[in-house]
Computed example of a mutant assay.
Amino acid sequence: MLCKRLLPTLQSCLQRVPLRPFLAPVDTPTDFLVAPRLLTGVTPDWDKDNVQGWIAAQHRSALLPLSQLGISWQRCDR
């Protein structure tokens, strides 16, 4: 879960994919952001102050620039 205040900072590091939002199985729009070796998905959360997000990286070194954003990671799949 990401605080909505972090979203503009995250968007400044990544490029928005110029597509209509993808509708996940529960019809919540998912926007995709990309950078070299990174793919991020962002979707609204039930709590209006937060958004759900996930980040996939080709290699963990691609996550290093995001470490300065102050995101509290809930899970890291290896």
Rank of each mutant, 00 (worst) to 15 (best):
K48T: 14
L7T: 07
Q74F: 07
A57I: 01
V26G: 03
N50R: 10
G53I: 02
T30L: 02
N50Y: 14
D27T: 03
R37P: 01
Q74G: 14
D49C: 14
G70D: 01
Q15V: 14
C13L: 15
P21R: 06
L10F: 13
L14S: 02
D45C: 15
F32K: 00
G70S: 11
D47G: 04
Q52K: 06
D45I: 04
L7R: 03
Q15T: 12
L64M: 07
P18C: 07
G41L: 04
C13I: 03
N50V: 09
V51M: 04
W46H: 11
W73K: 01
W54R: 00
C13K: 13
D27N: 14
A57R: 01
L10G: 04
S72F: 14
F22H: 09
Q15D: 15
V34L: 13
Q11L: 04
T40Q: 05
K4C: 05
A24G: 04
T40Y: 02
R75K: 14
T43N: 02
T43R: 05
L66R: 03
Q68S: 15
W46N: 10
L6W: 13
R5E: 02
Q11D: 09
L38F: 05
Q11Y: 09
L2D: 02
S72T: 12
D45G: 01
G41Y: 00
L64H: 15
P25F: 00
W46P: 06
V17T: 02
L39H: 08
L10A: 09
V34S: 12
L14C: 13
F32R: 03
D47P: 03
V26E: 13
L2P: 01
R78G: 05
H59C: 04
T28P: 00
A57F: 06
P36W: 00
P25R: 12
